[in-house]
Design a protein around this nucleic acid. Structure first.
Lengths: 217, 217, 217, 217
DNA sequence: TATGAATGAGTCTTCATTCAT
DNA sequence: CATGAATGAAGACTCATTCAT
């Protein structure tokens, strides 16, 4: 301390004495998640994450040896579990596509409520062609889940005009996309507060009978 | 010219040797558009654009004094016109919302057909919270168009369960999002080639009567 | 210029207007060579080379895309030619080993006179087990040269007590090593100025008849 | 202890659990010596030494307050004693230079056999101009030893063509250099196993009568 | 019109070092 | 005795930007 005073130089490597333990890791992951959702993965520097969490960039490397590793950890501990918790997306009651999809819709919105970073991150990094989550997540979930879902859809398809290829992306388009950009209209004047439930309701309504006038019972 | 000879980078079809005046600018804008759509605006370096167009990075600054200016020009000369060409989105036949929206849907898909960079760029940079087009485009089109659209919707809303705030983003979600990520399912096995028309058809069907079984005539 | 004065900030990227042309590359290579010889390859930072040459570190990357490339270029344009100019080391008069080796000795010293970085660099980076030149140079010169030399030695070996494996490294030990560390004794008091010729003379004398008293003719 | 169990890093033969007091220090010094010889002093990180010894980097600072101090300790406890054990290098029988030098040669090789890190480290860090041992070791041994040796040589010099300045470095060049780079030729095909004794024999032979044909008795 | 040469600022990464425990 | 947590400084590399030609 005296040394600092005299030389005006903090000696290198003095830890700041903040709270410690493995909570730091968790904390950094949380912050990373938020910032990744906000600015995109590639455009978030380790420094930003560190600063936001109250640390120095060097500490990011103390915890995650490499930048890539941060993403790996995030995938392992956050994305994959979340994805897994969605189950095999469209494998519900084979005879009632509407019910199945409705359920999934609700689940998507619920998950988004629980993990606010989910929609933006998913739209950005899973759907976009150059999204950083796409490839890795595909490798983990492609086999089991994907095929089952497609099989389910194919069956339904025969009865309706559903397109196996489109139904899934469309579903995301009416749930995650609005959720991700909810701030889009929130800023505008005369804005009714569009919340998750409203999005869910709207999505389901759309799926069930389009935007036309209410179906007569 | 020597450079072209060596690298073979010149695209066929560009007249060589002729005075090419401001075509360079146009060319750079085109390339920028494509790359911006592919990797995102922030993640595309001026050097990439330059190289892809057969120029040096320095040329980018010769033409667009600053990086930001490239975006400004792009907005002025590409995005705004395109946006303008969509008209006041939901101002069609006041008595037939379905027809109005259907028309818009088709127009969106058509425009996407004409300007392949449109869907990806829009999803990425207009809808996302930190999208670089959002703010500037908003400033230009917020007033006139937006209000009119909302007014139109509000009226319809009373009759159906349409949500004024959600209908627009949802519309994008079932057109531009699938268009933007069409490569997403194209890779998968047993993949039917999902084209624009299919997306349009699917979107309209969804809007008109949901994914349920075909309505009895 | 005005801007600088007012803001106190040099705007980024202002080139310093120094002499230009491909001489810079040559200059940087020269400086690199000297510093590599002085501090070792790994321990010379690009910044040191740049500063010594009157540039910024960033310019090193302008010229040599990667650090490794600097070494590659150096090998191609400096080390390999030098090595090549030594010819097949021990392929002289098959009947007169002494003459052959004497000649090589002289050549080594001559080359060291022409390229002052040669001895230190060779001892450090070619002979040492973790020397950075060893592997790459080996790949280029192992086949042709090496085998011929060894063959030559083997023959001589039968007549004298020369050890094929040792003669070469020993030769370096009595030429390049003294040359490399000539500053070692130059600092000492009462030091006669040991120059190249002296080293050559001494090495040859040692090879011819050891350090014993002068042979009677 | 837990760490050891998990990583399996503990070398066999080290008594565990017993009070190990200052052995840690010894152990760290040993490891440092080996790694310094292998990669050079500057290029060996404290972390590498620590890990190789089964400790954490922080432990290095616990034991050697500063990096420089590690070197100081090494010099005091390893290099200086070793150097001292070589005695005043060339102060043997004043009337028989050959015998004196031969003896020293043998001693060098013997020491190298006992301390495998010796040759490489010496070549790297004592002889090279920027070697980290040069300056400090010089300060300790310059006065006494050096002068005596030179005096001895000067006398011999008058009778033969020995060069006082060169004889010492040359001697190192034909002993330590081959020893240091013995892996150099060990890889090559048709390789006789060049061991220490061979190097000693070869060096002495060279000193006594050069590489020429065996002297007639 | 267009480019080559050069640079400042910023990011990622490593490492010695510190401190509380 | 020994470590985990944390950091400052420095190096490699990228990129937008500048200027002279």
């Amino acid at each position: 301390m005296f040394h600092e005073f005299v030389t005006g130089l903090r000696r290198p490597g003095r830890p700041s004495g903040a709270a410690r333990g493995p909570e730091q890791r968790t904390r950094l992951l949380n912050v990373a998640l938020v910032l990744f959702a906000r600015h995109g993965i590639v455009d978030t520097t380790l420094g930003e994450i560190a600063r936001e969490a109250g640390f120095t960039p060097a500490m990011m490397h103390y915890v995650f040896k490499m930048r890539d590793q941060l993403l790996d950890v995030l995938i392992d501990e956050r994305f994959a579990p979340l994805r897994a918790s969605l189950g095999t997306p469209l494998l519900g009651n084979p005879d009632d596509p509407i019910a199945t999809i409705t359920q999934l819709t609700q689940r998507l919105v619920d998950v988004a409520g629980e993990y606010p970073w989910f929609p933006a991150l998913w739209v950005r990094e899973m759907i976009s062609d150059s999204g950083l989550l796409r490839q890795p997540m595909h490798e983990r979930f492609a086999n089991a889940s994907q095929k089952a879902s497609l099989a389910a859809i194919s069956r339904w398809q025969r009865e309706g005009q559903m397109n196996a290829s489109l139904v899934f992306i469309t579903l995301l388009g009416i749930t995650l996309l609005p959720l991700a950009s909810s701030r889009l209209w929130r800023d505008e004047p005369a804005r009714c507060n569009v919340g998750s439930e409203e999005i869910a309701r709207h999505a389901i309504a759309l799926l069930v009978h389009g935007i036309g006038p209410k179906q007569p019972a």
